[in-house]
Write a protein that binds this DNA or RNA. Structure first.
Lengths: 124, 124
DNA sequence: GTCATTCTACTACACTTGTCGAAGCCAACA
DNA sequence: TGTTGGCTTCGACAAGTGTAGTAGAATGAC
């Protein structure tokens, strides 16, 4: 499930709260994204075709629901980035993050902590 | 500097070793990417237009050189991912990484290892 | 009932991206 | 010197993307 940039905007709005109508989504789009109503409808139609979103008619109006979880979409985007730009491995990415100082000490600590918890509690 | 998927392939090959000719790049493309020679040339032309790559004629043949560092390209791709899919913050990403069961144990171990090494050697 | 509002369904259209093919230019070799 | 093989530049074309307008149907307010 590959989403385009514009589609991410829609999905982000939809994940925020759903089900939602096209108009709901329109209102929730980040300031700065001023798309025409029909643009949003077009996006939604395409997302429905892609099965990323479900559509149910309620009276005259369509109501939409995500069909792929944010988690799944994130995973897919993350994997793509990894494959494309980081030799498909987490190592180079982490390395990069560290080098680039993109991770604050706090974030590193958090990441480590969560990973460790995982390792321990993972016995289940 | 936004690179497309195909462009990443080219750039990856070019960063590997440069300067390089189109043919060099062709040979270095990952198995499975079997592009016609002219496809590669097209990509290179577009990359030159975009100023991601420099081109110098050597006799009859063009020799190419990256003009954006891998580091920079990675940063840009990383930022895009963050903005698009992780609310623009590293926090959610770290969280995701930890939650994500799709990461293999190996990848997690790698994460931890790199973080630890960083913490130690990166005292500067 | 009629009008304004609001949906929906269709259509459109320029730009980008992924992939070449064709045709011409040049150096080296039989 | 004519042929071969590699290089180059141009042009092309189908799909995918971003962005929206239009027309017609349904709904709610007088």
């Amino acid at each position: 499930m590959k989403l385009t940039e514009a589609e991410w905007q829609i999905m982000n709005a939809l994940w925020q709260k759903h089900p939602a109508t096209a108009r709901d989504i329109m209102d929730r789009l980040p300031a700065g994204v001023n798309w025409a109503y029909t643009t949003i409808k077009t996006m939604l139609t395409r997302l429905v075709e892609k099965q990323a979103v479900g559509e149910v008619k309620e009276g005259n109006t369509s109501v939409y629901e995500p069909r792929v979880s944010q988690q799944k979409a994130r995973l897919s985007a993350f994997r793509s980035l990894l494959d494309q730009a980081f030799d498909g491995a987490v190592g180079p990415l982490v390395h990069f993050l560290a080098e680039e100082k993109q991770l604050t000490a706090k974030e590193k600590a958090e990441l480590k902590r969560v990973l460790e918890n995982e390792a321990e509690s993972k016995g289940e």
